[in-house]
Write a protein that binds this DNA or RNA. Structure first.
Lengths: 160, 160
DNA sequence: TGTGAAAATTTCAAATG
DNA sequence: CATTTGAAATTTTCACA
């Protein structure tokens, strides 16, 4: 599978519309883009097969399911070797509190985005699932006041 | 709209399945959960109206659209006053490179998740869109080696 | 890529327990 | 009164032009 995929203006417009609402019908896509619905189906199938579209995700409000507090945990794993970080990553991913996990450059190796019931739940999570582990050298906790999604992801404009 | 919503086992199972694949049909949901398809439609409509389901998002691979490098930017905005941070947030959200934006506790006020074409593009972004701004006091850049999504978001288990 | 028809799904009103 | 039934409306899907 090639690293990047050739996308024409029809593909780009379809991606833009689907990022706005992933449930847009082929009929509506077709009307907006100016091609036949079956062409939209073909384009979307191609984008899926090409790996441009990875899937469809449900956007949920964590607060509405009893997790009104979100936080980012910066975690140092020491020693930072493969035999330790593999299990660490899988354990973190399996936590019901985890929303996303990043492996980063810099002094803090991992960033974990979590959603919890409150500060007590957050304290329990940090103490029981992170700092109590031998491979976890340090955890820094920052609360999320607010978060925003951003505009559609599109190819960079070629610099002149 | 209430802060949280009463969810029975049917709702929870539907949410779990839809988080796994948001395109699961009502027919398949119904078969898996053990109710009629129309009941699934009713439950999902309710979850949408109740704000539990915020929408359906397309998961895309940034690398496939010419943005193979991702990074997190920690940004200090000084002075941290409403009349400065409102425009800052809107400008950042409108950048084609921005994927997500967080307002955090701690010394770094904002975290910006960006996807760029390469290190040159990242340098341009940091210099032209962040450090050149008067209200931006400091930017710290960390590259993302790898990222993972996590298991389904479900209500916390009541502590005994 | 479009046409048009078949298959599947979504949606809803009425019936059911 | 939430759920199911059953049918209509819509969408998805595909063979062929």
């Amino acid at each position: 599978m090639p690293d990047s995929v050739a996308l024409d203006s029809v593909d780009l417009e379809i991606l833009r519309l689907l990022q706005n609402d992933a449930r847009t019908t082929y009929r509506d896509l077709a009307a907006a883009v100016g091609v036949a619905p079956s062409t939209c189906l073909d384009r979307v199938s191609r984008l899926r097969r090409g790996g441009v579209i990875l899937g469809h995700a449900l956007r949920m409000d964590p607060a509405k399911v009893g997790r009104p507090l979100e936080a980012l945990l910066s975690v140092q794993v020491r020693p930072h070797r493969r035999e330790l970080i593999g299990p660490f990553v899988e354990r973190v991913r399996a936590l019901p509190e985890s929303r996303a996990l990043f492996h980063l450059t810099g002094p803090d190796d991992y960033l974990v985005h979590v959603a919890v019931a409150g500060t007590a739940d957050l304290q329990r999570l940090v103490l029981d699932e992170f700092t109590s582990r031998r491979e976890v050298a340090r955890v820094e906790t920052r609360l999320i006041f607010q978060q925003w999604t951003c505009g559609p992801l599109l190819p960079p404009v070629p610099q002149a």
